[in-house]
Amino acid sequence: MPPWTSCAWSLPAPRRPRSGPRHRVSAATGIAPQNYSAQLTANRMAPEVAIATSRAAGVGLTGGLVATGLVTEAEAGWTPGARQAALDMLSDSDLTVLAGDRLQALGKTLRRQEHDHQQTEKIWENLG
């Protein structure tokens, strides 16, 4: 499943106020805001976090479980193709911006990983 398919229910992406849904979720689940944001962007949430997210976003509680792929749309009792329909409702510009945001986030993560890898190699080279 491409990451952006979760956009049908996902929360507004960057630069949100401190009282926003992300902070409510992190307060409710006890996960640090940055960690939660990272999980949300990567669409890799534990079920309880996904449910807390659904609650904060004001959608059905199964929404998060479907989005993270734990249950299928049919299992959650969605009408067939509901997700596709929600996606189709988004304009090309919305989709493009969303995809761009996620690519940028992915790029940042990869850059950090590459930097860490280089640093690790250097430490081993000098102190290993």
Partner: peptide
């Protein structure tokens, strides 16, 4: 020197 080199 080793540590400074290693940690860049």
């Amino acid at each position: 020197i080793r540590i400074a080199n290693g940690f860049g």
